[in-house]
C-alpha cells in the first residue's frame, strides 16, 4: 500500500475557557480528542457530525489555521504539525481551504481578478502575463465568465461567491483541499451546482479533499469515505456507501434515520430513531462512551469504558462496544 497523502495521528485540540487567575475557574474543553485517519491521493473523505462535534476545529487544525495540542499531521511525507514561517507558506501551496461563508472569506474591496491572483503572486508563480492567463483559466474552470473578473464580491450571488472561493483555492494547484461546509449556506438548486463543480474538479484534477459537512446526503454525493464525529471523537469511519447502507455505530444509525426524505411513501416505511436530548457539552463530557446517555443499546460497560476505534471484518472502523448488526466475534 502506498503512503497516504495526509496522515492524522492521534490529534487532539483542547481549549481552556472561563476567566480567573486560578486554574479552578477554568475548564478544559477537548474539542478534538485523539483523532486519527488518513486520506489517500485523490480521495475525498467526508467528515460529518452535528454542531459542536469538533469537525470544523479539526479542519482548521489540519490546515494549520489552529495550533494542535498534541498529535501529528503529515502531508505527503512531511511533518507539518509545528511548521512555521516559510516552511508553512510552502505547505499552504499544497493545502488550501474553502469556507462556509464565501462572503466573509473574500476581501470585499478587491476585485475577483485580484482575489484569485493573490495566491499566485504571493507564491511567485509566474509573471504578470502568465498570472493573468492562469486567473482567466481558473475563472472559466469554476463556471464564471470573463466579465466577472472585474467585479467585487458583493456583486455576486452566494453560489457565485463560492465559485470565486473555489477558484482561489485551486490557484496553486493544491494536492489537498479542506472544505468546511462549503454548500450549507446555499439554496438547494445552487448547492447542487457547487457539488457538481467540486465533483468534476476532484475527478479532473485528482485533488484530495477533506469535506466537512453536516448534511449526509451532500457527503454521500461527493465523498469516497466518510468519518462520523461525535463530541470530539471519530465514532465510525469507512467507505461511504457501506456506512450509509448499514451504519455500525448507533449514533451514525440515528443520524441517518433523522435525515428527512423527500418521498412520503418511503418516509412512512422508514424506521425512525429519534434521539432524546441534545449532544452533551464538550466541557462536561459523559463518562465512558460519549454517546451512551442517548444510546438505545447502551449497557453498563458503555458508562465506564471508552470504546476504542476498532477495524471490523468489512474494513470499516467503529468505536462502539455493541456495533449494530456486526458480530462481536470478529
Amino acid at each position: 500500500m502506498s503512503t497516504p497523502l495526509l496522515t492524522i495521528d492521534r490529534l487532539s485540540k483542547t481549549y481552556t475557557t472561563g476567566s480567573g487567575l486560578t486554574r479552578a475557574g477554568k475548564s478544559l474543553i477537548r474539542a478534538v480528542d485523539d483523532v486519527s485517519f488518513t486520506i489517500a491521493d485523490g480521495e475525498t473523505l467526508g467528515l460529518v457530525g452535528e454542531s459542536g462535534c469538533g469537525k470544523s476545529t479539526l479542519g482548521r487544525c489540519v490546515t494549520r489555521l489552529l495550533d494542535v495540542s498534541s498529535g501529528r499531521i503529515t502531508l505527503a511525507g512531511t511533518d507539518i504539525t509545528r511548521q512555521r514561517g516559510a516552511a508553512l507558506r510552502a505547505t499552504r501551496a499544497d493545502l488550501q481551504m474553502i469556507f462556509q461563508d464565501p462572503y466573509a472569506s473574500l476581501n470585499p474591496r478587491r476585485r475577483v481578478r485580484d482575489i484569485v491572483a493573490e495566491p499566485l503572486i504571493v507564491h511567485r508563480r509566474g509573471n504578470r502575463a502568465t498570472v493573468s492567463d492562469s486567473v482567466r483559466r481558473l475563472i472559466a474552470d469554476v463556471g464564471l465568465r470573463p466579465e466577472h473578473l472585474d467585479r467585487f464580491p458583493h456583486e455576486f450571488s452566494g453560489g457565485q461567491r463560492q465559485r470565486v472561493g473555489i477558484a482561489r483555492a485551486l490557484a496553486l494547484a493544491p494536492r489537498l483541499i479542506v472544505a468546511d461546509e462549503p454548500v450549507s449556506a446555499l439554496d438547494v438548486s445552487v448547492q447542487a451546482q457547487i457539488i457538481n463543480l467540486l465533483t468534476d474538479l476532484k475527478r479532473d484534477r485528482g485533488i484530495a479533499m477533506l469535506f466537512i459537512a453536516h448534511d449526509l446526503g451532500v457527503v454521500r454525493q461527493i465523498a469516497d469515505r466518510v468519518a462520523v464525529m461525535y463530541l470530539g471523537h471519530i465514532v465510525e469511519i469507512g467507505a461511504t456507501e457501506q456506512i450509509l447502507a448499514a451504519a455500525a455505530h448507533p449514533y451514525t444509525e440515528a443520524l441517518i434515520s433523522a435525515v428527512p426524505v423527500a418521498d412520503p411513501a418511503r418516509a412512512k416505511q422508514r424506521h425512525r430513531i429519534v434521539l432524546a436530548g441534545d449532544p452533551p457539552s464538550p466541557a462536561n463530557p459523559p463518562s465512558g462512551c460519549p454517546f451512551h446517555p442517548r444510546c438505545r443499546y447502551a449497557t453498563d460497560i458503555c458508562k465506564t469504558a471508552m470504546p476504542a476505534l476498532r477495524e471490523m471484518a468489512d474494513g470499516r472502523s467503529v468505536a462502539c462496544h455493541h456495533p449494530v448488526g456486526i458480530d462481536q466475534a470478529a
Binding site: 438548486s189 448547492q191 447542487a192 457539488i195 454525493q221
Partner: peptide, 17 residues
C-alpha cells in the same frame, strides 16, 4: 433533482437548475 439522496443509486452528478 438537486437534492442528494441518502439511499438508492448514487447519481454521478446531481440534476441542477
Amino acid at each position: 433533482g438537486s437534492m442528494p439522496a441518502l439511499d438508492g443509486i448514487r447519481r454521478p452528478r446531481l440534476t441542477t437548475i
